[in-house]
Design a protein around this nucleic acid. Sequence first.
DNA 1: TCAACTATGTTCCAATCGGTACAGCCAAGA
DNA 2: TCTTGGCTGTACCGATTGGAACATAGTTGA
Lengths: 188, 188
Amino acid sequence: MAKIVAERSDVTPVLAEIFREHGFEGASLSVISEKTGLGKGSLYHFFPGGKEEMATTVLRDIGQWFEEHVYLPLREAEDPRMAISAMCRSVADYFRSGRRVCLVGAFALDDVRDRFADQVRDYFAEWRAALATALEKAGNDPARAGELAEEAVIAIQGALVLGRALDDTAVFERALARVEGRLLAGKD
Amino acid sequence: MAKIVAERSDVTPVLAEIFREHGFEGASLSVISEKTGLGKGSLYHFFPGGKEEMATTVLRDIGQWFEEHVYLPLREAEDPRMAISAMCRSVADYFRSGRRVCLVGAFALDDVRDRFADQVRDYFAEWRAALATALEKAGNDPARAGELAEEAVIAIQGALVLGRALDDTAVFERALARVEGRLLAGKD
DNA sequence: TCAACTATGTTCCAATCGGTACAGCCAAGA
DNA sequence: TCTTGGCTGTACCGATTGGAACATAGTTGA
């Protein structure tokens, strides 16, 4: 058979979507094999550690994407208010207006959280910290910046839950608009 | 062997805790059998429909608890502001300050949402509606009441996610305090 | 007192699980 | 051209899955 893709980096986003859809336990090797188009042999060639290595790879991938597109722009922005707006756009894009689930959030609610505790914690801790940094640069005092940042992350995650529960993308869009407004206003 | 408990209603809360801890796919019959202390024979006597029936029973149980302790008091409160405060206390209790996960929220993020879509949707829809009713009675106009209610439910769910991800119960407590303050203030 | 019924533990089942072994395939370098 | 080594499909492994069957023990009503 011809060498078509054969790079871990090509398979990782597909794996991410599978884990998002089925969760860790629900993602069986057979559905992984089917949706990636890779036989078990290939899967274990790329991920000798099996499902666990697939999941950590996916989590690292997600972490890197957020670091590059969200955390770093927030931390190093010249105009923090513009960076915050940009974050909201990126997040809306990434989560497809709530149609897409946050894999890290889903893992956090599951008992697999324990197996990936470090990566799950870091994802949210860095998000909160980067947003707080931007909020401070926008003129909020440290305590207020931390509170606003935490509230924003909470609202985004909660909106993903509620939006999927009600099967209504408007929930997420409304929530994100509120988040942006409150972050930019800075007051209660 | 002696008849010890032998009621569905005795097993249901245990099942709920198992599903909360492991998710639907992760809750195998063997752990269910172990934690309930019931053999497979007994489990299938009480729940002929297998795991699916166990889950729907648990969801119905949760729905009834919230109807009785949260939704109904909110809808029929004489003093809506006191009812809102009572809701916050009930919720903090129920979720054990964030140490306990919202099973319905966890299901919403999983692909099992599709199998229990109606129960998942109703849980959140009724919560939002009951809270909005109380907020209207407290003097908010309907649009504002709906927005505040949605925001509160989102914040609670998001706080459960973030709290578990960071393994920090203070996250949930802070969030709930903010929710109560904002619901009672009524303004932005 | 004795059948009828309910609850329970044990056992078994086919299917599927995650994972391994391995033989061959292909493209590229020597 | 031949070799090499990364990739792939297939067959298979033991373990576990969700589920069903069944014999028996406890309870109950006649």
